[in-house]
Every structure is written in structure tokens, then in C-alpha cells.
């Protein structure tokens, strides 16, 4: 079942065309992994799904992205609502300059979703548990989030993103700044979360793609070359360029 539909999406940055006429359906409650060499438009495609491309001055977008059949680029769409629905994990963790607790509560407060006092405490605990961080931080919720290790910080960022109850989670190489055990930890979390969320990841680590992906999209120079169920694309690619990439030739 399709959750995100990308329709004839083109993205230009100044005179460079970063995305060329992308048509893609991203399945619900699966992990879709976008692979491809650097500069191929993976991240651009990812950030078109939470309207993060708007933030880059000089970017021009045409085409459309639909979530649950509704355009997120239609005039009058509230960008903050889009981003609430579509969470994003960045390449490296950026804990907000506040306590661990406040980091998780941040989105709840911003959107006035919080029940005060106890309710908020419970919510913070819930999302820290979902991110697999609760046991490590439950005794020091009020220390600055910057004191956590990088791996813990990334899980904190995950908890912060989950707290606003998104339907979709985007990850822009979310483990690339982490040590292997921390990266594995995040991967485990993502696998657990796909029951409830649609997850779209960008990665340049093929082994990670193999470990996580249900659905794979291969991008090359702004084009979507091939997409399909993970097994099919990774083990039996139909396109010559996909095969070349998987074998390390490009």
C-alpha cells in the first residue's frame, strides 16, 4: 500500500538539475532505502518529502509529493504540519541546547500537544523508551543533552522526532556519524519502528541497505534508475547502472 507518492518531481538548484522527473510510490510500514553514489540526489529526494528543500535558497521544485493522497506542495499547506507528520533524522545528531527531557518535550510543547505535569513526564518516558534510551538516561533527565555520547544523542533525536507523533520517518544517513555498536542500535530501533511508521532512509552503506531495506530505490545523477522490493533490486538488478553500482564500479 502506497504511503508517499512522488509525481514527476523535478528539483533545480540554480542551473543544476538535482532531481529529474522522479515518479515513485513509497510503501507504507516498510523501510525504503535510497542508495546511490554521492551527489546523485538521494538527500534531495528525501528532503523533498518534508519540504526541507524550501530552506535552500535558490531551489526550484516542480511536480508533486503526495502523502496519503494529499499534496504537500499545494498552496495553503501548512509546512509545519507537514513536518510534524514527517519526522527527519539528520546525518549527525543535534541535541537542542536544553536538557534531555526538554529535547523530547520540545515538539510536544511547540504543538501544544502536551498534557501538563505527569502527562508530559509519561510522554517523555514513552518516547525515550521507544528510542531505546530510557534506561540510560532516566536518572539524569535534566542534564544538558550535549553531555550524552553521540550514539545516545542520535537516539535522543529519534525520541524527539517520535514525540510529535509522525507517520513517516526520514533518515539522512542517520548512522554515518556513529560508532558501529551505536549504529546497530539505531538500526535495531528502526526495524522495530517500521510496524508503526513508514521509514525512508538514505544510505551509502550497501550492507546497511541489505540489513534494513524492504524496498530499494537506486538513484544516479538525479535520475531514479531502478526501484523495487529489496531482494529484487539488490540481488537481481535489471539495470546495468544498478549492477555496476552494487558491484562497486561506480
Amino acid at each position: 500500500m502506497t504511503h508517499i507518492s512522488i509525481r514527476n518531481l523535478n528539483a533545480h538548484y540554480r542551473d543544476h538539475q538535482a532531481l529529474k522527473d522522479i515518479v515513485l510510490d513509497i510503501p507504507r510500514n516498510q523501510i525504503t532505502v535510497i542508495i546511490g553514489p554521492s551527489g546523485c540526489g538521494k538527500t534531495t529526494l528525501l528532503k523533498s518529502m518534508n519540504r526541507f528543500l524550501d530552506l535552500v535558497v535558490g531551489t526550484h521544485i516542480s511536480g508533486d509529493v503526495l502523502i496519503d493522497g494529499e499534496s504537500i506542495y499545494a498552496p495553503g499547506v501548512d509546512v509545519t504540519e507537514v513536518r510534524k507528520k514527517v519526522g527527519l533524522l539528520l546525518q549527525r545528531p543535534f541535541p537542542l541546547p536544553m536538557s534531555i527531557y526538554d529535547n523530547v518535550a520540545y515538539g510536544l510543547r511547540i504543538h501544544n500537544m502536551h498534557k501538563r505535569g505527569r502527562g508530559l513526564d509519561a510522554a517523555v518516558q514513552h518516547y525515550l523508551e521507544m528510542a531505546g534510551l530510557w534506561d540510560e538516561v532516566k536518572d539524569r533527565l535534566h542534564v544538558p543533552a550535549g553531555r550524552l555520547s553521540v550514539g545516545q544523542q542520535q537516539r535522543l533525536c529519534l525520541a524527539r522526532g517520535l514525540a510529535v507523533e509522525p507517520e513517516i520517518l526520514l533518515g539522512d544517513e542517520p548512522t554515518s556519524a556513529l560508532d558501529p555498536p551505536s549504529a546497530l542500535h539505531i538500526e535495531k530501533r528502526l526495524l522495530a519502528l517500521k510496524e508503526q511508521y513508514t521509514i525512508v532512509l538514505v544510505t551509502h552503506i550497501l550492507r546497511q541497505a541489505k540489513r534494513l531495506a524492504d524496498y530499494v530505490v537506486f538513484m544516479y545523477l538525479g535520475e531514479m534508475v531502478e526501484h523495487g522490493p529489496a531482494q529484487q533490486v539488490l540481488e537481481n538488478p535489471q539495470q546495468e547502472r544498478t549492477r555496476a553500482y552494487l558491484e562497486g564500479e561506480i
Partner: peptide, 21 residues
């Protein structure tokens, strides 16, 4: 910039991002 993006990514407005982050 990642800090701003982190705040915007949970649906904060630009002003909220400036004020809180």
C-alpha cells in the same frame, strides 16, 4: 544549521526555532 533543521524538522516555525534554539 543542523540545530535549526532539527527544530524545524519537528514542525517548529522559524520564530520558535529562533526563540528556543
Amino acid at each position: 544549521n543542523g540545530l535549526r533543521e532539527s527544530s524545524l524538522a519537528v514542525g517548529a516555525t522559524r520564530w520558535q526555532t529562533i526563540k528556543h534554539v
